[in-house]
């Protein structure tokens, strides 16, 4: 369909100069930097209670999580150092377990179950910390059920 009105014809308009699209050239503002896809965190910050109480609650949560992480992380490292010192400096390393000296069995196999147990322990307890935080503020967490939905809901398999 040919257009009779020259004003509507884009070719007749003086076209604006072409500009190449570039990535961000300046630092983002705080607001931009904090903009999240889901904005869930922002809702949490503005919902539920007055701002003082919210700040207190988040600080408390942070302290609890940090304490938990430090105890487990530093504890694991110190345990590994002490145990391997024991293996190296004393005769323990030469003791055998089913024919394998402990100097081999402990670093080769022994630390792996410990790592798994620590990881499971941390996951449970950090989630419990967050649950407590939510209860203090009267919120409900985007619960662990929602992370399980992809497997639990068979109808959601096809993305289209």
């Amino acid at each position: 369909m040919s257009d009779a009105d020259p004003a509507a014809d884009p070719a007749a308009q003086p076209s604006p100069p072409r500009t190449s699209v570039r990535g961000p050239q300046a630092e983002p503002t705080v607001r931009e930097a904090l903009l999240s896809r889901s904005q869930a965190a922002d809702h949490a910050r503005t919902a539920g209670a007055d701002s003082d109480q919210r700040d207190q609650a988040v600080r408390g949560l942070m302290r609890a999580q940090l304490r938990l992480a430090l105890i487990l992380g530093v504890g694991f490292f110190c345990a590994v150092v002490l145990i391997s010192l024991l293996l190296v400096t004393t005769g323990f390393g030469a003791l055998t377990l089913w024919g394998v000296p402990l100097a081999w069995a402990v670093p080769g196999l022994g630390f792996f179950p410990v790592l798994l147990v620590l990881a499971g322990y941390f996951r449970r307890h950090s989630e419990a910390n967050e649950q407590r935080w939510a209860e203090v503020l009267g919120l409900s967490l985007q619960s662990s059920d929602s992370t399980a939905t992809p497997t639990a809901r068979p109808g959601s398999g096809a993305p289209r």
Binding site: S38, A44, R45, M62, E130, A134, L139
Partner: peptide, 16 residues
Amino acid sequence: HTEAVMARLHTPEIAA
């Protein structure tokens, strides 16, 4: 803006 960023990093996602 440290406080705001910290709150963002450590605030759990809540049910929408």
